[in-house]
Design a protein around this nucleic acid. Structure first.
Lengths: 337, 337
DNA sequence: CTGTTAGCGCATTCAG
DNA sequence: CTGAATGCGCTAACAG
């Protein structure tokens, strides 16, 4: 057994009471500097490590953060998760995972079950879980703090967001600078705020370039490879086909590229393709994909930090903003002719 | 507050003692069937949910399983994790994550810190964390149960494994059946058992087909896209180049495909390519990749089940075996000419 | 088969 | 600024 040493032992070693040790450990005020140091020394010498369960039970806190998700993108999740873990570690919290089925009517019940069983001190929500009114309402009833990553609405909500509209706008500007005028867009899943933002940025980008919006160049999608395949099939069948396709995410772009190559189109000579998200795959397909980088790890970390803040004092969490970065790679080039 | 109802309330409602309720909840013996039902009814009626921390503290168990990993493949991890979570859920356990740096000399210390702080009741090890003698030794000193997924050595070790050698052998057989004789292999990371198994299967497959092993057709790799790029560069520069390249995993195969397409080779007409793992990407690249499917989710689930068994009674965990499946897709075809 | 007694290790009163 | 008592909700020993 490792930690047979208890707070009582530390107290004895430092010639103080248990309570004083507890104060030092929890960074509470009202401890003289020299006694604090004495306690810390004893903690160190005895290699004391507080017991999680005892702290939870006595303090009525679980020191647990739950990460809620339904997003099927493993890369996105692993990165967010890494950020959440990093923030948890520095605050002596542990992270729980809560995979959800977005389309299930029982989603609120599932979260309630998690909360009842594990009593997390707070929740980190990832899109599109961020945008379920019923869930949000229940959480505030339960008075359980949460932080959202890229939620649709930022109002009085802790978390972190990136200006995806501006990023999409910039991407279109990049295509325009390469001489493209017939720029198509394959949209994302309608339930995701990201789809709206990226589409809005696309349209604003066209407008800014003085290019009239052509409805035939906008097709529906759902952030999947398959929707890229379908979308590209539709777009490349057009009599006047686009010279560039801006897919709402990298998976969709991969579908576009597959279709284009199957049709013996050269990328980017015959068709420019770009995506969004900068997944590892975007560097591993041929040709390497021009896309938008999101600082996903950092977003997970910052959201968790805000969550932790609002756990300590309600209303302390804020909505933070992080920068994006265009990754220009081989899949975009000058417009043909 | 949800669970203001305690075991005491349930006991009162069922007209039994706290201890009897505890027995029922923990599936302990020595409870008459009718009292058990009475208790269960009360639990249900009052919507009683046991308190995690109190159970941990009193029982000296954390009800926590830690998943140790360093594998950079997000897809692999998310699938394993899903399996671990599924098994945990059915046993009222929670899962903790422990990302590790394989090359760090502090890896054992990191695990010790996790064990000291969070006191998991058991650990699930993923490759190549499964094969660190120093770590394994420390864990048995600490007497903390563990289960391994695809460990190099199966001896007295709980967990789950797949016959990767046989799978690689079958893959080569598939290529041979398509008429290939010059079959190259780009190996995986030397630290992984999987690299050995797959290489062994490759050589056995050649031998079985009566094809002499050609050292120039075997190049080193490390399971990365980049190693596929380098390996393919080398192999395609050969005067007598291979007609098929069997990459040790899908990422490596993606690198091969990129190089081949850059050189204007047609796949599979000029060159067949296959991988291993059946990552989602394998279906999303062009052409879709022939590969080997591992039941990763199931492996995580089964390993956790074995771990849970060996937590309950030491030496109860066994080494389980799961089947693989070849996924034949577009990237392999008849050998040229 | 069931109940009673005593802590698990800590934080939280409220005194000094 | 510090300390002594009390209990968080549950399970482990023992009794019956």
């Amino acid at each position: 057994m490792a930690s047979r040493v208890r707070i009582e032992d530390v107290a004895a070693a430092a010639n103080v009471s248990m309570k004083t040790v507890s104060r030092v450990l929890n960074r509470e005020p009202n401890v003289r500097e020299d006694t604090r140091e004495r306690v810390l020394a004893a903690v160190d010498r005895l290699n004391y490590i507080p017991d999680f369960s005892a702290r939870s039970l006595a303090g009525n806190k679980s020191f647990l953060i739950a990460l809620l998700y339904n997003n099927p993108s493993a890369n996105y999740l692993m990165e967010v998760m890494g950020g959440v873990l990093a923030a948890c570690e520095s605050h002596q919290y542990n992270m729980l995972l809560c995979p959800l089925d977005f389309d299930s009517p029982k989603i609120v019940a599932n979260v309630e079950a998690l909360v009842a069983r594990s009593r997390p001190d707070g929740l980190v929500l990832t899109p599109p879980i961020t945008d379920l009114p019923a869930l949000l309402a229940r959480l505030s009833e339960l008075e359980i703090p949460s932080a959202s990553i890229s939620p649709k609405v930022h109002a009085n909500c802790a978390g972190v967001a990136m200006d995806e509209t501006q990023a999409a706008y910039d991407m279109v500007a990049h295509l325009v600078s390469l001489g493209h005028r017939r720029i198509a867009h394959i949209a994302g899943h309608p339930a995701h705020g990201a789809s709206d933002w990226r589409l809005t940025g696309y349209r604003q980008g066209l407008e800014r370039a003085g290019i009239e919006f052509d409805p035939t160049l906008l097709v529906a999608g759902e952030f999947s490879f398959e929707s890229g395949v379908h979308g590209a099939g539709e777009l490349l069948d057009l009599k006047r086909r686009p010279t560039a396709i801006f897919a709402a995410n990298d998976d969709t772009a991969a579908g576009v590229i597959t279709v284009a190559l199957e049709r013996n189109l050269r990328i980017p000579e015959d068709l420019s393709v770009c995506g969004f998200d900068d997944t590892p795959m975007s560097r591993h397909i041929f040709p390497a994909l021009t896309t938008v980088h999101q600082p996903t790890h950092e977003m997970g970390r910052l959201a968790t930090l805000e969550l932790l803040a609002s756990i300590q004092k309600p209303d302390a969490g804020e909505m933070l903003h992080v920068p994006y970065a265009l990754q220009l790679r081989r899949s975009t080039g000058p417009a043909p002719k």
